[in-house]
Design a protein around this nucleic acid. Structure first.
Length: 282
DNA sequence: ACAGGCTCCTGCAGGC
DNA sequence: TGCCTGCAGGAGCCTG
């Protein structure tokens, strides 16, 4: 499932391929209620706009959009004045393809670009979300949670102060930290030597600093390897990532711990399967 | 403030 | 082989 490193990989790949391209046509399929913006309004809003840049915020992919030709003649400059926001959910893919590439099942959106390429949104499980924002009528997208790659020690520690919930549940809460999902929560807790059920507010400054650094390290390493391909994740070109080979605990239930050889345990925390080593994590 | 449960949705794995 | 069941989970919602 796409988390921060996977979303970052996709956003970079899409940016490299479609930056400066123009949306000639936008098609939306029947994705029951997938869109925060109704499909028709979304298609109309995207039509004719330039893709100024593509980047990631939390688990969201943000396409910064310039004005369409029609509107542009009334404005000066090429500043972005709208956004297309893509959340991949669990099984979402954002692919840059040629028009003749066979249409994958569960393709819910197709943007035809002036370069001849297409930007496609494919999502079998339909947990993904698409949204169009025009700055004339809505705010710029802002993720409520902090960025785990850049957050400083004091701010990180403050997120958890006084909180009774399990540290794993806190890591998954997107309004605290944006971008951490099940894989990187488990992996960072292992690397920090902390049990997933430890109460967030009871962790010491030292614990939390270990966690902050472990989280940053694991996310950066995963980005370098193009993310983790555990279910069916692929990047903008359809290529898998390789960080799953570096997992210490995630989906390794019963397998020997890579540090101490004890079997990896599986429990449920915050309704999510949670993997840890009882010896290495205290 | 938070836990726990449920919902959405499909593909896949396991049991029989 | 084929069917059925259960499980996977991000996020939002609702209840306790």
């Amino acid at each position: 499932m796409p988390e921060l490193p996977e979303v970052e990989t996709i956003a970079r790949g899409v940016n490299a391929r479609v930056r400066g391209d123009r949306i000639v046509d936008a098609w939306f399929g029947s994705h029951r209620e997938p869109f925060k913006t109704p499909a028709q309004r979304q298609a109309k809003g995207l039509q004719g706009r330039e893709i100024v840049s593509v980047h990631r915020t939390g688990k969201h992919i943000i396409c910064e959009l310039g004005p369409s030709d029609q509107i542009r003649s009334q404005l000066s400059g090429h500043k972005a004045n709208a956004q297309w926001i893509v959340h991949l959910g669990m099984t979402g893919r954002l692919l840059v393809t040629t028009p003749d590439e066979p249409l994958a099942p569960h393709t819910h959106a197709r943007l035809t670009l002036s370069s001849g390429r297409e930007l496609r949104f494919v999502d079998p499980r339909r947990f993904g979300r698409l949204e169009f924002r025009d700055f004339a009528r809505s705010e710029k997208f802002e993720s409520p949670g902090a960025e785990p790659l850049t957050i400083e020690a004091a701010e990180f520690a403050a997120l958890f102060r006084g909180r009774k919930l399990a540290i794993k549940a806190a890591l998954l809460n997107q309004s605290l930290l944006a971008g951490v999902g099940n894989i990187y929560a488990d992996e960072s807790l292992f690397r920090a030597g902390l049990r997933p059920r430890r109460r967030a507010g009871r962790l010491t400054k030292v614990d939390l600093e270990r966690l902050r650094l472990a989280l940053r390290e694991v996310l950066e390493h995963a980005i370098q390897l193009g993310g983790s391909s555990v279910s069916d994740y692929v990047d903008a070109e359809g290529m898998p990532g390789f960080f799953q080979l570096e997992h210490f605990v995630y989906q390794r239930t019963g397998d020997p711990c890579r540090r101490c050889k004890d079997p990896i345990q599986r429990i449920v925390v915050a309704g999510r399967s949670t993997h840890y080593c009882a010896k290495c994590q205290v």
